[in-house]
């Protein structure tokens, strides 16, 4: 326990020295691929809207009008994925 603690103290001091020396940006860039950085800005828009719309009355199809008395019966249509999943190579579409 004592050894573990002492060793951790020394690791900590080396780490802080390294971090102060290297500067934050260089280390950060190492584990964030450029592609990820680029796309993050686009995704932000997509998710940015969510936050605003999430509790908005207009977000619900019927939320304010309240006219529909019945939701679509989930069992009345075939549950088979139909979207972009088919574009993934090797992604199976067979119902199991």
């Amino acid at each position: 326990m004592m050894n573990k603690y002492a060793s951790a103290v020394s690791t900590l001091s080396v780490a802080i020295g390294l971090a102060l020396g290297a500067g934050a940006t260089a280390v950060r860039a190492a584990d964030a691929p450029q592609a990820a950085k680029d796309s993050a800005t686009q995704l932000e828009k997509c998710y940015g809207i969510n936050r605003v719309a999430k509790n908005d009355c207009a977000a619900g199809v019927h939320s304010c009008a309240g006219q529909a008395t019945r939701a679509r019966d989930p069992k009345s249509f075939v549950l088979l994925p139909a979207g972009a999943c088919s574009k993934i190579d090797g992604g199976s579409l067979k119902p199991m």
Binding site: S7, S10, T11, L12, V14, A15, I16, G17, L18, A19, A22, G23, A24, V27, R28, A30, D31
Partner: peptide, 13 residues
């Protein structure tokens, strides 16, 4: 220890 320290430095910064 240097590797572990480098990892920790990365986290702290």
């Amino acid at each position: 220890r240097d590797t572990t320290a480098a990892l920790l430095a990365e986290q702290l910064s």
